[in-house]
Design a protein around this nucleic acid. Structure first.
Lengths: 147, 147
DNA sequence: ACATAATCAGATGAAAGGCTCGGAATATAT
DNA sequence: ATATATTCCGAGCCTTTCATCTGATTATGT
């Protein structure tokens, strides 16, 4: 049970984009460097993000990716679901009639509660907050270097 | 990101065993029926559980599996980890020096917190409590049938 | 001794994960 | 207007993991 590499990279990229000044485009190469991940693989991840409307892509010479103004404060949960699809901790959480035991199986409620607890955390974490935090830590580390 | 089928079955089996009177053995066939899962596949799952010490196995004519008295009130988390190994929501949560970004990346804390939230729920859920709950629901459903 | 039941190593098919490559789109310079 | 450099798009490949089964082996009660 683990987040996919793609989702991890997606979150990294979104945080990076949120730290850039508005209306700034970043190329795939820049983003790959920032996220420390294989550049080509990022293509697929960025496509998922554009399809979900979280980022806007521009082709051509001055192209690149920028944060969608509508989703400037997206949550980690949104990003993960954009890449991996809806979160379901267990198969029995997929739909109403997938698991016949739903009526009486006590495990069902536990999985649901566990997923809710996790989603709560991921929903609260917004990329703007995280970008600010990252900027703060960066300057602190820089200052430490000077002494 | 999903629990494996094996872990799901393991939890089902453990709840079933916890609902049986103490010192009762159940054969693989019985457990497979109770958990509604392929019997042969259960072998592998039950082996994981015995290796982890959660259940005790007996071979031969009157053999079968029973709950280890030491782990009578095991949690769902214990069961999942017995089957899948330690839970790590993201690769960067594996060890101290796996991810170079740990010092500054704000996502790291989010993954850790999300995992902690989930683990908290799974740790609180004990099989004895769930077995009682299942028994209760069962009798309620039976009673409903009579009216 | 025999029937029964767990154990273990390994095979298999399907699916998912991680990654690559050729091609289409677009801005800019000539 | 056309060439060209730059950039994203989307189909496809390879590897690993998952879920399941097979079959031979070992242990145990009657």
């Amino acid at each position: 049970m683990q987040i996919t590499r793609a989702a991890d990279y997606a979150v990294r990229v979104m945080i990076h984009l949120a730290g850039l000044p508005p209306d700034t485009r970043a190329s795939r190469a820049d983003l790959a460097k920032a996220a420390e991940c294989p550049e080509q693989f990022l293509s697929k991840v960025l496509q998922s993000l554009t399809h979900a409307g979280l980022v806007v892509s521009h082709r051509g010479n001055t192209g690149g990716f920028e944060l969608s103004s509508a989703h400037r404060d997206a949550s980690v949960l949104e990003i993960v679901e954009a890449v991996e699809g809806p979160v379901k901790l267990n198969l029995c959480l997929t739909g109403p009639h997938v698991c016949e035991r739903q009526n009486w199986c006590p495990a069902h409620a536990v999985w649901a509660e566990a997923q809710a607890a996790m989603n709560g955390v991921l929903k609260k974490a917004t990329i703007t907050a995280m970008a600010e935090e990252a900027a703060l830590v960066r300057t602190t580390l820089e200052t430490a270097k000077w002494n």
